[in-house]
């Protein structure tokens, strides 16, 4: 187990290294940072002085390693557009995005998993057919359309839910959360549904097809022949065997949820990183773009690592190297 984790950690670090390289290249070759930072009336000498003080005249490898060193401390300099430290900006925005993504992922798991299990156990039931038709909508409608439809129905026509923003938030240290307040929760409903709907239907369809597959296997037949209860067969034997693919997809999807919260955040004017990133693109605010790139890559790497460790927990066959180490 530890050897496995260390190997995975090293691989993750290689991934992060290459992402850092891309981010660094963007920094240096998409436009001139000095040009972005100073006004039009700054003299040539001042520009050169700034260039020197920023270390932009150093050899490229030196600059790259300085970039990595700073990135490891999550220092990405000053945003061109906001004239504030990128770290501070992300600290403000990160909780909003993470909260939204987490709630969306949780919703899709908590609703999608039971729906999938039900549809897998009763493939001919009318409710299963309703689930399946519903999932088709979730898979095929684009996110922004769902968001706009929800706003139209629940915010404009019925007036039940706010159409934009996070509502009231509470601050715990530098972390802000909308979960403890009613207006925060209300504001969270539509964005998280919009963001999670696709994953929900994906998880549901995946669990359903995996369940159907597993229920046909010999070990389920044998479990029945041993007289085990349906509960033990479905939830003890069948569900656990469907989990490996479900964990994979859910893990990858959580990464995508965080990365692609951009669209949902735009539709609902959610003050998260996605919105910040989109504004940064408009204004060629490269420090923010680089930081966003690194952060999203970091999330993906952490999630993948977690997924790998979960595999290990769920499926003993993947613990092969452990078995060898014990000499059995």
């Amino acid at each position: 187990m530890p050897a496995f984790i260390i190997r995975r950690l090293l691989q993750s670090m290689i991934v992060m290294f290459f992402v850092a390289m891309v981010a660094f290249l963007m920094f240096n070759y998409v436009g001139d940072p000095v040009h972005q930072m100073v006004g039009i009336d700054t003299s040539f000498e001042d520009r050169e002085a700034l260039r020197e003080s920023l270390g932009l005249n150093d050899p490229v490898p030196v600059q790259f390693f300085r970039f990595i060193g700073n990135a490891a401390k999550f220092e990405f300099g000053i945003s061109y557009q906001h004239k504030r430290s990128v770290t501070g900006l992300f600290k403000e925005r990160l909780p909003a995005t993470l909260e939204l993504s987490f709630v969306a992922a949780l919703l899709s798991l908590v609703i999608g998993l039971p729906m999938g299990v039900y549809a897998g156990l009763k493939p001919d039931g009318w409710l299963s057919k309703v689930f399946l038709s519903f999932s088709l909508i979730g898979v095929s409608l684009p996110t922004f359309l769902i968001g706009i439809l929800l706003i139209f129905i629940f915010a404009v026509t019925l007036g039940w839910l706010p159409s934009y923003g996070r509502g009231e938030v509470m601050h715990i240290g530098w972390w802000s959360t909308g979960l403890p307040t009613i207006s925060g929760l209300k504001a969270l409903i539509m964005p998280s549904i919009t963001l999670g709907l696709f994953q929900l239907t994906l998880i549901m369809r995946l669990v359903r097809s995996e369940m159907l597959e597993v229920l046909r296997t010999d070990y389920i037949k044998f479990a029945r022949a041993r007289g085990l209860s349906n509960r033990a067969i479905y939830f003890g034997h069948a569900l656990k065997n469907t989990l490996v693919p479900v964990i994979t997809i859910t893990g990858l999807q959580i990464g995508s949820i965080i990365a692609f919260a951009i669209i949902t955040e735009t539709v609902f004017q959610w003050p998260g990183m996605g919105l910040l990133f989109l504004q940064a693109i408009h204004n060629v605010d490269i420090p923010i773009m680089a930081a966003y790139l690194m952060l999203v890559a970091f999330f993906f790497v952490v999630i993948n690592l977690t997924v790998d460790i979960l595999y290990y927990v769920v499926d003993p066959r993947l613990r092969l190297d452990l078995g060898k180490a014990n000499g059995s």
Binding site: T217, D218, Y219, K221, F222, A223, A225, H237, K240, N241, V314, D315, P316, R317
Partner: peptide, 11 residues
């Protein structure tokens, strides 16, 4: 059953 390789739950 016929196939012992698949009659036991692998997990």
């Amino acid at each position: 059953f016929q196939d012992p390789l698949t009659s036991l739950n692998p997990l």
